[in-house]
Computed example of a mutant assay.
Amino acid sequence: IVIDGGSNDETNHILAKYADTIDYCVSEPDKGQSHAINKGFAVATGDIFCWLNSDDQFAPDALKSVALAYLEKKADVIAGICEVYQDDKLVHRHFTSCQDGPLPLNEILDLDNGWNAGQFFYQPEVFFTRELWQKAGGAVNEDCFYSMDYELWCRFALHQANLVGIGVPLVHFRMHSEQKTADEAAFKSELINVRDRFLLEHNINWTQSERPPVNWSRKLKVAFINDLGYKFGAGTAQLRIAGAFDLAGQDCSVFDLLTYQQADGSYRCLFGKVAEFDPDVVIFGNLHAITPNDISVLKSIEQLYPTYWLTHDFWLLTGRCPY
C-alpha cells in the first residue's frame, strides 16, 4: 500500500514502474503524515501491521523474521534492530532496552529516565498485530506532527501489549538534515506535550521515576575470559560475542588463562589485569580445564564482579567438547 501526499517529483513515475506489485496506491493532497498513515491502514489487510516512511528501507529478510517471531512468540508487538545510516554509511545500531513482556507504560511515560534513555523505538523497527491496532483505537492521533508513533505505543502499553524483541536488523533508518525529527528541540517539546495530554486523557496518576540521569558517555565494560585463547569453534564464537558488544559501542577486553598463568600455576597477573580494566561484568567461556577440576579462578572472579558463563565447550561442567 502506497499513500503519497501528491508529490510533484518523480514519485508517480517510479510508482508506475511497480504498479503490478502494488495492491493499492493513491497520490493526492492529505492533512499530513498521520492522516496518510490512517488512510493506508484503513485499506490494510493481514495479521501484522507496520508503516515505512519514504526515507527508510526494510533490511533483508525483515518480513520473514517478523513473521517467524509472530508465529513462535505470539507477540502483540515485535521490535528489532534498527540500523541507522547517514550519508549512506552505517553509523549506529539501535535495540530497545525495553524487556520482553507487557510494554512498560510507566517507563514509556518517563521520558527523561526511561523512554529517551534507551527504551524508545525507532518507529519503522516496530510491527504490531491488527488485533492490537483495533483494540487501541485503530488510528494514529492526527493532532501529532512528530509523535504519532509514541502516542500509539502509549495506547498499546495501556492495553498491556506483549512485546518481543528480536536481535536481527529489521530496518535501515536514514538520518539527514531534511527529516522532520532533525529539529530535536521541536520534536522533544511535542513529545512532552503528547505525554502530558495522554496522562490527562486517560486520568493516569503518574510520577517520574527516581532513576539516576543517563550518562551517555559511560560505556559498559565487559571482560571475556577463557583458557586457551580465541580460536577453534567455541573460542571463535566467544570472540564474535565480544565483537557484538564492541559493535554496540561498549568497552570490551579479552583475557585467556594460558597467557596469564604463572610458573607456580597461579593467576595473580590475570587478576591484576582484570582489576586494572575494572569490568562491570565478566563473561567466562570456552574453558577446557587447563587446570583440571580447579574452579578457583571462577570463584575468585565471581567474588569481585557480576559473572556469566557461556557453557559452549565449558569442560568444567561437560567433561569434553562433544557434551
Rank of each mutant, 00 (worst) to 15 (best):
I3H: 02
D4G: 04
G5P: 10
G6V: 01
G6A: 06
D9R: 08
D9N: 12
N12E: 15
K17W: 06
Y18I: 13
D20C: 09
D23L: 13
D30T: 10
K31G: 12
Q33H: 11
H35P: 06
I37K: 04
D47I: 07
I48H: 00
W51H: 09
L52P: 11
A59I: 06
P60Q: 02
A62W: 00
S65Y: 04
L68S: 13
Y70H: 10
K73T: 07
A75Q: 09
A75G: 07
A79S: 13
I81A: 00
I81C: 02
C82Q: 11
Q86I: 13
K89R: 14
K89D: 08
R93K: 09
F95L: 15
F95K: 13
Q99P: 06
P102E: 04
P104C: 02
L109F: 12
D112W: 13
Y122D: 08
F128Q: 02
T129P: 03
G138Q: 08
A139R: 11
V140I: 04
N141Y: 09
E142I: 10
C144F: 06
E151T: 01
F156Q: 01
N162G: 08
V164F: 07
V168I: 15
P169M: 08
L170A: 05
V171F: 01
F173H: 14
H176K: 02
T181G: 15
F187K: 14
K188I: 09
L191Q: 10
L191F: 08
R195A: 12
D196I: 11
H202W: 07
I204R: 04
N205H: 04
T207I: 05
R211Y: 06
R211T: 00
P212C: 06
N215F: 03
W216F: 15
W216I: 11
K221Q: 04
I225Q: 00
I225M: 05
N226F: 04
N226E: 07
D227C: 08
L228Y: 11
T236R: 13
R240M: 07
I241C: 00
I241Y: 02
D256H: 09
L258T: 08
L258W: 12
Q261I: 15
A263I: 11
R268V: 07
K273H: 12
V274C: 07
V274W: 09
A275Y: 05
F277A: 04
F284K: 11
H288K: 15
A289V: 00
D294A: 08
I295N: 15
I295G: 14
S296D: 05
L304G: 06
Y305W: 10
W309G: 08
W315K: 15
W315R: 13
T318S: 13
T318F: 06
Y323F: 13
